[in-house]
Amino acid sequence: MRHIISILMENEAGALSRVAGLFSARGYNIESLTVSPTEDKTLSRMTLVTWGNNEIIEQITKQLNKLIEVVKLIDLAEGKHIERELMMIKLKAEGDHREEVKRLVDIFRGKIIDVSDNSYVVEMTGATSKLDAFVDTVANELIVEVVRTGPSAISRGIGGLHL
């Protein structure tokens, strides 16, 4: 099963490579990983998407907790949560395709943030599955490049991951 693990960790050089190293050394799957500072400059927040059975996920959270720089973590799959991912996708936009692509972007509630005479850059946010759907819908030969951040996620309600 897919799990989103949110981690608060010390904002120190090397912390990210400890997490990445742990996953490769122990053979855990890693689908995406995002990291950035928080409102507290000494802390970074990492969102990590992985998958595995319950035993593996239990080991992953235990091993992450064992890293000295990890302060706190939560497996968001254990409760209700929202996830969003940002995608920027550059598409060829010439002739008939220009209108067709525009319509498709509107349906997916994306935004065209750069236009040239033969291309669009589309910004789109949403759950990973929505972005996947857009990529699948656009004709493959129109795609120039795809940049995705990987999901960020947060729990619903007042509870949260903080110190």
Binding site: E55, E58, Q59, K62, Q63, N65, K66
Partner: peptide, 11 residues
């Protein structure tokens, strides 16, 4: 003492 040793290889 190490939680990650528990239920790692054997439940």
């Amino acid at each position: 003492i190490d939680p990650s040793s528990i239920s790692k290889n054997v439940r």
